[in-house]
Design a protein around this nucleic acid. Structure first.
Lengths: 116, 116
DNA sequence: AGAACCTTGACAATGTCGTGGTAAGGTTGT
DNA sequence: ACAACCTTACCACGACATTGTCAAGGTTCT
């Protein structure tokens, strides 16, 4: 029995057993399994669970937010598309010649979405 | 009346008027206003609305996902904390000496969360 | 002035998220 | 064998996300 079982892990991380299963379901922290199927949390998982809790509390995030970030981290096409869309938001008309900036935006969006 | 009113914008973008108000509420696309308070969508907003629709459909995203990405784009502390947490996920024990890697993770998380 | 817009606000239906339970059944340590 | 675990699979509830629709009232165009 290499590692803590779910109730032990719950006690040392502050999550409930129920939530540990839910966190696993989101794909954010997945423990190993014993031959009989018991969840076995190692030091790495325990640490990740604690810091995850910190992260969520500090910024008022939901698990789904972090799960979405994870999805972006693993899929460059997603990330590029989202960040590309967001980049145009900050851009101001003053940055570009009066007649050009709209066409610029348009082509940029088209390119980004076409590639993705 | 510089720009399209909400129903006109709805027709050319594929969003419903109701959803255009909702999108505005999420902060993702905010039209200008006429002196009387009418929403006026310019070419830039229309383009952003169309590409936003594309983006959501192509990757099965919700507005809240993109809103969260926008929040990260605007707050480096949030972004760094989330990405820092995620980075450890990909890392394998083999990358580091057997006794060191856990301490390494631990310190990394502590630093990241302390700074944020 | 009257039709055809626009505004905000509210109520409603459906769906997902975050959590907690509970039940039926397998595993483990003494 | 028996207590104390564990597993999966459900039901449930409140909060939020996504849409629609309707009402009361202001604006615009002809």
């Amino acid at each position: 029995m290499e590692g803590l079982t779910i109730n032990e892990a719950a006690r040392t991380t502050g999550w409930s057993p129920r939530m540990l299963r839910y966190v696993e379901q989101t794909g954010l922290v997945s423990p190993a399994r014993s031959p009989a199927g018991y969840r076995l949390y190692g030091p790495a998982q325990l640490q990740r669970l604690r810091t995850l809790k910190e992260l969520l509390g500090r910024f008022e995030l939901g698990l789904s937010d972090v799960a979405f970030a994870a999805r972006m981290a693993v899929r460059p096409d997603l990330r590029d598309a989202v960040e590309g869309w967001l980049e145009t938001e900050a851009r101001r008309p003053e940055d570009v010649a009066p007649g050009d900036w709209l066409r610029f935006e348009q082509e940029k969006h088209e390119k980004l979405l076409a590639v993705a």
